[in-house]
């Protein structure tokens, strides 16, 4: 059977790209998942057509590595929803999403996948449906759950990367500590108004003296700050997974979109 699948992939791919319709046909014929078909294709250096514009930033072997990766996104509001979509489109194969909340009207200014019809629905379920519609090779675990880092570590222990998309310093501090103690790569991001801060694989004591709220409680979070921050965190995650470039390890990036200041501490 594997030989037949390989033969089909070879025969029906176009210039080393595998179109979705071909994948779908192979999945149906051989009762395989999209992920399994894509794994076989990428090992043959044939890339699913959806990733054509990832190249040559991402090679077929890196694409396979992403497909076999698992990222946990803790918090599925502003940052989490956008990060989930970015990682889906770039081709991370497994995402675990955590959030206990439902979409409300005041989320519509910035939160990905929120819309009038989604109001009152659980965020993780709406986001899961949204990203599965983008990429059927993705495996998504959605937990309607208020994540408590010290109690719930087992739920993220298999992740290659944990992304902090939480909205409160107390849980951020705890998540950073749990990840550090267990040597899991951790990517912090936080926003308030036009300000952002980011760090990778660090604990957060230098950013948060205690767990109380920051200035976001009085100045809110506009859409472009959220998508900007989600992009920085997603880039950190991909660089970590693929061992590319430089990450913000033991560094803090402070951003101020009002005055276009970008400072590394």
């Amino acid at each position: 059977m594997l030989e037949e699948v390989i033969e089909n992939i070879k025969k029906d791919s176009i210039e080393n790209f595998l179109p979705y319709e071909v994948e779908k046909k192979i999945c149906n014929t051989y009762e395989m998942s999209y992920k399994e078909v894509e794994q076989i294709a990428l090992k043959m250096n044939i890339t699913p057509l959806r990733y054509k514009r990832n190249q040559t930033t991402i090679s077929p072997s890196s694409q396979l590595k992403l497909l076999n990766s698992h990222v946990a996104i803790v918090g599925c509001g502003g940052l989490g929803g956008h990060i989930a979509e970015i990682l889906t489109r770039i081709g991370v194969g497994k995402l675990s999403l955590f959030d206990f909340d439902i979409f409300e009207e005041h989320n519509l200014n910035r939160q990905n996948f929120s819309n009038i019809n989604a109001l009152g629905k659980e965020k993780v379920i709406v986001v899961k449906n949204g990203i599965e519609a983008i990429n059927p090779a993705l495996h998504v675990e959605a937990y309607i759950h208020k994540f408590k880092p010290f109690e719930d570590f087992n739920m993220i222990k298999d992740a290659n990367i944990v992304i902090d998309a939480l909205d409160n310093p107390q849980t951020k501090l705890e998540l950073a500590k749990v990840c550090k103690d267990n040597s899991i790569d951790f990517i912090h991001g936080a926003i308030a108004g036009l300000n952002g801060q980011f760090t990778t694989c660090s604990t957060l004591e230098n950013l948060y003296r205690d767990g109380s709220s920051g200035i976001e409680s009085s100045i809110g979070n506009p859409a472009f700050s959220v998508t900007f921050a989600a992009s920085i965190q997603s880039a950190e995650a991909i660089k970590k997974l693929l061992n590319l470039g430089e990450c913000l390890e033991d560094k803090i990036l402070i951003t101020n979109l009002l005055e276009n200041e970008f400072i590394i501490l």
Binding site: G77, I191, S212, S213, G214, I215, I254
Partner: peptide, 8 residues
């Protein structure tokens, strides 16, 4: 001095 930023 940088203000505390904790939103998500």
């Amino acid at each position: 001095l940088f203000p505390k930023v904790g939103g998500g």
